[in-house]
């Protein structure tokens, strides 16, 4: 079963590479493929994330959490279950997201000390994820229909895309450029420009590994030039296609974390 799967994905990889050789894909195709490569690998997935947040004065803080993801279909609705292990004051806190491509996400936070399931307003996705320099949107992906995309460069290794928001008031950037690896279609770098068109924020993939046939970012970093801080995320224990049950992404498992999140 597993063999068939990796053979299949290899075939897909080969085919996509072949297409690249024949003709440069159009912008929408690149965007779709990059979105799927970055956020939809496998039908579901799991990773242990170790986040190091460094502020402008060099002080560091750590977050350790397990993230479970399940897709309805590639490019479609998704569910995320984030279980915090560290630091100890937020241990067992769970963050649950039902992400929709056509409407606002549903978000919940479970606070174990109070046994409280709190519903969270999801209006602004460009706010810090748990105090880090990553935004919620960096974790779960920005809707591909929210920007206009232009191909700036069709280089040897990368496609360089310029993305301009359709609703500029809703975001803090005026545009961002993304470097997409031509082989894996993973976005390797995103550089956000402020209203003065100067870069002030960079999100980069620092390491990529092949996991079950999916090129996967195993280390990423976001640098914030305005505040001078940065956050590095390292991903381990990654696996795909675990057959995660849809019920895991419900209230039941906020109170009773699934075995997948324990060490």
């Amino acid at each position: 079963m597993k063999k068939t799967f990796s053979a299949l994905s290899l075939a897909t990889l080969f085919l996509t590479t072949a297409t690249c050789v024949l003709a440069a894909p159009n912008v929408e195709e690149i965007v779709n493929k990059a979105n799927n490569a970055a956020y939809y690998a496998g039908k579901d997935g799991k990773a242990l994330v170790d986040m190091t947040i460094t502020d402008s004065q060099g002080r560091t803080r750590n977050r350790e959490f397990v993230i479970l993801r399940r897709d309805d279909k590639d490019g479609g609705n998704q569910e995320f279950y984030v279980f915090f292990r560290k630091p100890s004051d937020i241990r067992k806190t769970v963050f649950l997201v039902h992400k929709y491509t056509d409407k606002d996400d549903d978000r919940w936070m479970y606070l174990p000390d109070l046994d409280l399931v709190k519903r969270i307003a999801a209006s602004d996705k460009r706010t810090s994820f748990m105090g880090s320099h990553f935004f919620y949107e960096d974790v779960s992906g920005r809707g591909i229909n929210e920007d206009k995309h232009e191909l700036l460069e069709d280089g040897d290794k990368f496609y360089v895309l310029k993305n301009t928001p359709k609703d500029p008031v809703s975001v803090e950037f005026s545009f961002y450029r993304v470097w997409i690896d031509k082989k894996t279609f993973l976005p390797m770098k995103a550089e956000y420009a402020n209203k003065a068109d100067k870069p002030y924020r960079v999100v980069e993939a620092l390491a990529v590994e092949d996991i079950q046939g999916h090129p996967t970012v195993t280390k990423s970093r976001v640098q914030d030039f305005t505040s001078g801080g940065e956050t590095v995320s390292e991903f381990s224990n990654i696996s795909y296609d675990l057959g995660l049950d849809a019920s895991i992404f419900s209230e039941r498992y906020l109170r009773k974390p699934p075995k997948e999140v324990y060490r």
């Binding site: 109070l114 046994d115 409280l116 399931v117 039941r252 109170r255 009773k256």
Partner: peptide, 19 residues
């Protein structure tokens, strides 16, 4: 805390409860 049935959870003892 245990699950006597696939669709059932039971938590017995001292616990904080909220709804």
């Amino acid at each position: 805390l245990f699950s006597p049935l696939a669709a059932m959870d039971v938590k017995m003892g001292r616990q904080v409860l909220t709804w």
